[in-house]
Simulated assay, not measured.
Amino acid sequence: MKLIIQIPCLNEAETLPTTLAALPRRVAGVDVVEYLVIDDGSDDGTAQVARQWGVHHVVSHRRNRGLAAAFRSGVDRALAEGANIIVNTDGDGQYEGGDIEALVTPILHGQADIVIGDRGVSENAHFSPLKRLMQRVGSGVVQHLAGTQVSDAVSGFRAISRDAAQRINITTEFSYTTDMLIQAGRKRMAIATVPVRTHAAARPSRLFKSIPRFVMHTGITMARAFTAYKPLRAFVGTGSLIAFVGMVPILRFLWFWMQGDGSGHLQSLVLGGALLVLGTLVAIMGMVADLVAANRKLMEENLVRTRKLEDMLAAMQRDREPGRTSATAPRRKDAA
């Protein structure tokens, strides 16, 4: 049983050593613990610091590609390295490394596919009142879209089983957190939460430059996920609403027409007819999108089968390599 703890980083050379020092070297029920750093285009030597501290795997992006891309790169590398469980944490030391064992325990016991670290948003002293409000509202929306009970949907501190990682396909370019949960909920994966400890942020977030920007991007991600997984409800519902609104001016025209004054209200008939046509077209778009969604499910099933075949081939290749042994835990570098 191998656990790989991945850390997406952007200019974290200063805080990364502290984060690495706090990570567990051993976890009950796990045979091998390895670390993976994803350097997302840093210009402060983050990758070099990771190697100096004995990190087992380092993935480097030539330029900054964003948190979602860094997360995807990390998961792909972890799967290629044979990880049975993947834990994602931050490089700024926000999350308590000692809680990783609590994160992976439900997966080890077969109780969950994905485990989210709940930061206790409503009572967390490190969050401002506005951030607490936004977290509660956002988590409530994600719970509705995913059909799950996750009180801290945007927490990046999470554990993922190998099977879940193979079945999740992150499509957003902003943040993977909500996209992953909505996909997992729609794919009927078992999602659990465990309380985790947090520390005060060492620096402002590099994920978003302002609260309105964060709200906008998160809203777009949720809307895309909703239309992708519930196209009939999204488009047919919208089309029906437009058509219903279109009936109002048509009924108005008919009322005046029965009163003998229809010629003076043709604009109501034109407007209502246009809205009816628009509503019908939107509903048809929903039917087409539903067919596309069905085709996407088939493609995702084929992708999972392909990934499992690649796992089998990689395992066979590793077995053929003479003298191959599991990597040991990274060294703890003493302070100068």
Rank of each mutant, 00 (worst) to 15 (best):
E300Y: 11
F127G: 02
M287I: 14
L103M: 11
G185M: 07
R318P: 05
A47T: 06
A165H: 00
E123T: 15
T306C: 06
I170W: 10
F253A: 04
G323Y: 03
V141M: 05
A80M: 12
A315G: 12
T172W: 05
I242G: 00
A22T: 08
S128T: 15
E14Y: 03
L266E: 10
K209H: 11
N64M: 13
L254D: 09
D39I: 09
H144K: 12
M216N: 09
A202R: 14
T46P: 00
R224L: 12
V32C: 10
T193I: 03
L241P: 01
D99T: 08
L232T: 15
S263K: 12
G29T: 01
A80G: 13
K308I: 06
P17G: 02
F127Q: 11
G82T: 02
R318N: 10
I114C: 02
G97T: 03
K209C: 07
G41I: 10
T177C: 00
F127H: 11
S151T: 15
L10T: 10
G138C: 09
E301A: 15
A293T: 11
V150D: 08
D44H: 08
F157D: 02
S128N: 04
G237S: 08
F235A: 00
I191G: 01
A78V: 01
G66S: 08
T306F: 11
I114W: 01
A234D: 02
P212W: 05
R51N: 05
D261E: 15
I5L: 06
I107R: 11
Y229N: 11
M299C: 06
V137E: 13
W257R: 14
A192I: 09
A315P: 04
P17F: 12
